[in-house]
Nucleic acid binder design. Sequence first.
DNA 1: AAAATGATTGAACACTTATTCAACTATAAT
DNA 2: ATTATAGTTGAATAAGTGTTCAATCATTTT
Lengths: 121, 121
Amino acid sequence: MQKGKEEICEIAYIDRKKVSSVKKKMKPEATMQRLAETFKVLGDPTRTKIIFALSQEELCVCDIANLLGATKSAVSHQLRILRNMRLVKYRKEGKMVFYSLDDDHITNLFSECLRHVEEDD
Amino acid sequence: MQKGKEEICEIAYIDRKKVSSVKKKMKPEATMQRLAETFKVLGDPTRTKIIFALSQEELCVCDIANLLGATKSAVSHQLRILRNMRLVKYRKEGKMVFYSLDDDHITNLFSECLRHVEEDD
DNA sequence: AAAATGATTGAACACTTATTCAACTATAAT
DNA sequence: ATTATAGTTGAATAAGTGTTCAATCATTTT
């Protein structure tokens, strides 16, 4: 490390064998990005609650807003994000739009994470 | 909605029965917050990769930095966040600090999310 | 046709956050 | 002791994000 700036780590101490072994097992960059993005979408309290609510019942925007104590606008913005990630689907009925979960995996993800969060330390 | 501002949704159309039924099933606010926070921590590409790497092997900071193509500093900052969330633990050996996963649940969460991400549309 | 309502949207704002840089600590080697 | 190195830390910066507000769309009702 002679250079002024801190370079991408090239120090003598790295265990090259271990590193290359792990490197092989790493998923492709694109997969990692999607993994991170999925977690990120679930990682906002409003969206977390929306998804949890929808795992119980199909609901319209207004119901969700009422349930969370949020404005329709805020909920709608978040629903758009969930829609883009294909986590929720919707059904129009007159003026109203009913949302529901589009993916069973997410429910499993939630139960698994809940188990983690609810376990006593 | 006579008021000028858009109030917390109190529209006539809400299905009160449905809403209160779901409300009962909702987890406490604190649980929701922790759920969201957990997902959020997993929802950054750098941290996602760190956790995935540590699920394969115990690694020192320098190895992780090398593996991800990031600086030690950036990795160290993220490791602190993971430490605070009790997702990783560490072990000192001379100058080096070896990190490993502190929680088995996380591995399950990852496989579940990977299954979701890797499935064909 | 006009009014009302559920829902969506874009812009603005405040807030958060990840990385970089530089300084620093602690341990090991010379 | 001095030097080198693994790692941590705080401040600064740039990028991203969630909510609010106002305007708008679409459908229904009068």
